[in-house]
């Protein structure tokens, strides 16, 4: 959970190159040539990207960079125009969303999806995989799945306790606050025992006190041996927990590296603040934005100068 631990974990392997699409030691998820456009807008166009196993990778980028679309594509919630991706050597390209989850790649949503009219405990139990009683014909025989149900409930109780939600156990999920829903969604995703957990803005709308405990939970996930990929806007959060940062802008991967490297990367700063954020606004002949197609207005601009 401590930063020292994470540093040790990273340094035990060779550090990957800090170039977009660089090869990683022991990559769990490899994405190749994935592309998705909505009409004329290319939302995602990633040539190559690798995610390292047992690391926390942050996916950052300005609004509209295509981060959530990228999440949707690789979790089967959206279909790309082109591209392949493999998870642990398995081709995931044509799998529907629920099978992606069954394979151990589980996501949460930017707009939290608590199942309002189910209790917190029912929400949790839903996450468990391979339930006998989820088959229609076996569901009738309650004795056939009661034992497994008890095991699932015990596991759910332990997780709720870890997330300090045990007092809400029998409340409807619809009565939870926004931050509690985030916690519930993360805990519910953990019930699936995922190898990769993908969090879409896990800290959005969560109060600072809760953020600290959520951050702790995310680090615990890595320490348990899971791979975490998360989308986040808050740079303090990214700095605090991420082992690796991937920057997207206009659908492409523009930079990769540790958060120190990313912080110093001019391309990233340009993407966030605009290419001309540090130049003073003057009218000169080189300025492409003020260049007029017809000579007359260009002359008038010069005469004003």
């Amino acid at each position: 959970m401590s930063d020292g631990g994470s540093q040790a974990a990273v340094s035990s392997d060779e550090k990957p190159a800090s170039t977009p699409g660089s090869a990683k030691p022991d990559a769990i998820l490899l994405v190749d040539g994935i592309r998705r456009s909505f009409g004329g807008l290319v939302a995602v166009d990633v040539d190559h990207l690798e995610f390292q196993r047992n690391r926390i990778t942050a996916l950052i980028g300005p609004n509209g960079a295509g981060k959530t679309t990228f999440f949707n594509l690789i979790t089967g919630f959206d279909t790309p125009d082109a591209g392949t991706w493999t998870y642990d050597g398995r081709d995931m390209g044509s799998l529907p969303a629920h099978e992606v989850a069954l394979n151990g790649m589980v996501r949460t949503f930017q707009l939290t999806k608590a199942l309002s009219r189910l209790t917190v405990m029912e929400n949790m139990k839903l996450g468990a995989q391979q339930q006998r009683g989820e088959n229609l014909f076996r569901s009738f025989n309650h004795r056939g799945w009661k034992r497994q149900e008890a095991e699932i409930e015990a596991r759910a109780d332990a997780l709720l306790e870890r997330f300090k939600m045990d007092h809400m156990r029998d409340e409807f999920a619809g009565t939870l606050s926004g931050g509690q829903r985030k916690l519930l969604e993360m805990a519910r995703a953990l019930m699936t025992e995922p190898a990769i957990i993908m969090l879409d803005e896990p800290m959005a709308g969560v109060n600072p006190a809760l953020t600290q405990s959520l951050l702790g939970h995310v680090k615990e996930l890595r320490d348990e041996g899971r791979t975490v990929i998360f989308v986040e806007h808050d740079m303090d959060v990214v700095r605090d927990i991420s082992d690796w940062v991937v920057v997207m802008a206009e659908g492409r991967i523009i930079a990769e590296g540790t958060h120190e490297e990313i912080g110093a990367n001019t391309q990233v700063i340009d993407a966030y603040l605009g290419r001309h954020h540090d130049s003073t606004l003057t009218i000169d002949d080189d300025n492409p934005f003020l260049d007029q197609p017809d000579g007359s207005s260009s002359e008038s601009a010069e005469s004003q100068d």
Partner: peptide
């Protein structure tokens, strides 16, 4: 558990799929 999944689909299909 089957009925639980059914209600989950009623509440939010995408959440059920993600699980």
């Amino acid at each position: 558990p089957w009925g639980r999944v059914l209600k989950a689909v009623r509440e939010d299909e995408d959440a059920a799929r993600a699980l």
